[in-house]
Amino acid sequence: MAFALSPEREQLAAQILTRYPDPRAACIPLLHLCQQQHGWCSPEVIDYVARRIGVSTAHVLGVVTFYTSLFQKPHPPNVVWVCRTLSCDLRGAKVIQEHLERRLGCRPGGRSKDGKFALKKAECLAACGGAPVVQINDRYYENLTLAELDRILDEIAARTAAVEPSEPRHQEPDAGGAA
């Protein structure tokens, strides 16, 4: 089925397109907008954006594959990014990752047992002074301790509706290694 934006988002999309002398510049903002609604950049989303800005689907696919934050697969409702770059590693990021792995029951690149969380390793999130840092969806959590992390995850899990067990359970290969 062809992809369509909700009326409010459609209005936003029209507004975004006026910001540039060339509609092709709206590629990434539109992909973000679609991903907010759809959860990932599906072939239908790619097709929609390509038509909207007047380029080939191959072009848009090339853009999607270049950028870490544009998802090429469906995702659990919550994405947990644990920063493992130097400043965070100096402040215990590995402990945070190990705890997340135990608690969610998956490695980076995987999804939690309950299907509510994806776990991913992030590169420096521009919050090094608040290390260790975890980003969950759109929010940063800084100066974390394991106790606080548990509290945050409990809260998010509680407000996330149960995920259909029939959803596909893919494990992405972990490009960076999990050490």
């Binding site: 092709r24 709206a26 590629c27 990434i28 903002p29 380029v55 072009h59 270049f66 950028y67 870490t68």
Partner: peptide, 25 residues
Amino acid sequence: THPGAGAYICGEETALLESLEGRRG
């Protein structure tokens, strides 16, 4: 404002311009 999409290289000014114009950075 214009959002990036998760790529350190887009901080390099010409990669940033490519990305701003809607291409790979």
